[in-house]
Each structure stands twice: as C-alpha cells, then as structure tokens.
C-alpha cells in the first residue's frame, strides 16, 4: 500500500533564511501522528509545504504517491485557518464553497460532524468563539475522504471540554487506512490517541517513535518530548 506521506531531503528557505533543512519523513497508512516542536520550529511551514500552499522548496514531497501540487491537494485535507473568509460569512456559505472546491466533500458527513460539535449552520464566523471555530475547522477537514489529514495546532487556546470533543471526533470519524498528522507544541492529554510522535528541532525531524515503544521504556510521551529540549538547555 502507498504511504500517505513521503518527504525526502526537503529544504525550504524564506528571505534567504533556512526554515527547514534536510528533512526526511515517512508516514504509514492508518496512523495518528503528532508533529511536535517549539513555537517557530517550522511545524506550520511543513504543513503548508505538504499541502502545496508554500512553494519553492527543494526535495521531494509525495502524498499518496503523488508529487504534483494539484494531485496532492486531492489526496489530503488541510484547512489553513479560515482566514480567507470575511467575518460575516455564515457556516452554510463556507460549506457551499467547500462543496464546489472539493468533489469528495461529503455533506452528510459534515452535517453529522457539525451536529456532534453543536454548531448551528446559520452562525457567522464573527459569532464563533475560538473553540467553536476550531470545531468547525475539524468538521470541514474530516468531511473529505482522503489519505492524509493535517491539523495545525487544533488544541491551542481551547477549553478542556472542546478538546475532549475534538479528540473523540477524531477517533469516531477517522477511516481505517487514513493517516492524521496533528501539530502541537505540547503533548499532554492527547497522548493516548497517538500512534507515533515526530519531533522537529534544529529545522529538521530529529526523532520519530511509536508512543507505545516510549511507554515500554517506562517513560511518558511528555517526558520523552521534553528530554529533547532539556538536553539543549544543558549544553
């Protein structure tokens, strides 16, 4: 089976400054993976490169075996904020836009997710709290049927109840073979749903490990992640 993501020797510069260097990463089908790193480590940049939003990189990025940007976009689901929409836009209008843009957008699935998240269809973006907006992003992202889902810091600044709801929706709506990459700068509370962690440091992937393998060494995933940054402080 084709891997949902294969990145080889990726280099990305912005204003002549290296943001990502010599990055290699392969994700297997059917996994939930956390992309961890400090703020500014390059997590969002990496997601934007994978999804084809950020261009002019060197190296190879394959999504479900496809390298061309248009093909990649057809095999992954990524909602880059909702910054393209005016504040007065209603949820329903965003959905219409998604239906036009993505032929695999499943309205029935969206409505189920929307109801699960308790979002009313005629609400405007300006009426949504941070948590509600994040729930909407999740509902939109999971309403497509693709090999790879990218979630960029879905838990930042939202309360525990909303977080729990989002985690449960991930377990409920994930298809067996699809893979989810979730970025975050800390890792507690979601560790139990993760298959793997990928740690970004010094502009590249410095570690990829299964969470159960970490636990088998009597270490918590949080301790494991923190140890990479503590080492730096001691140096």
């Amino acid at each position: 089976m084709t891997n949902p993501l294969e990145i080889t020797d990726l280099v990305y510069k912005k204003n002549q400054k290296k943001i990502i260097t010599d990055l290699n990463l392969t994700l297997k089908p059917g996994k939930i993976v956390a992309l961890l790193g400090e703020n500014g480590a390059g997590k969002t940049t990496l997601m934007r490169i994978i999804s084809g939003v950020a261009k002019n990189y060197r190296g190879s990025v394959k999504v479900a075996g496809f390298t061309k940007e248009a093909d990649r976009k057809g095999h992954l689901s990524f909602t880059d904020g909702l910054t393209g929409f005016a504040n007065s836009t209603k949820i329903n209008d965003i959905v219409k836009f998604y239906q036009i843009l993505y032929h695999d957008f499943n309205l029935k699935q969206f409505e189920q997710l929307r109801d699960f998240m308790n979002l009313k269809p005629d609400l405007r973006l300006s009426e949504l709290s941070k948590g509600m907006k994040e729930k909407l992003v999740i509902a939109l992202t999971f309403s497509r049927r693709v090999d790879l889902y990218l979630l960029d810091e879905p838990f930042s600044g939202i309360d525990a109840m909303a977080r729990k709801k989002i985690i449960k929706s991930i377990i409920l709506w994930k298809q067996e073979k699809s893979t989810i990459l979730i970025s975050d700068h800390f890792v507690n509370e979601i560790t139990a749903v993760l298959d793997e962690v990928v740690i970004i440091k010094n502009k590249t992937v410095c570690m990829q490990k299964s969470t159960e393998a970490i636990r088998a060494d009597n270490q918590s995933v949080e301790e494991f992640y923190e140890s990479f940054y503590q080492r730096e402080e001691e140096e």
Partner: peptide, 9 residues
C-alpha cells in the same frame, strides 16, 4: 471512543 484511546491500541 469510550476510553479515549487509539483504535490500533
């Protein structure tokens, strides 16, 4: 879902 853990686990 009930235990909030990974399906593979």
């Amino acid at each position: 879902v009930q235990l909030t853990v990974n399906v593979n686990t």
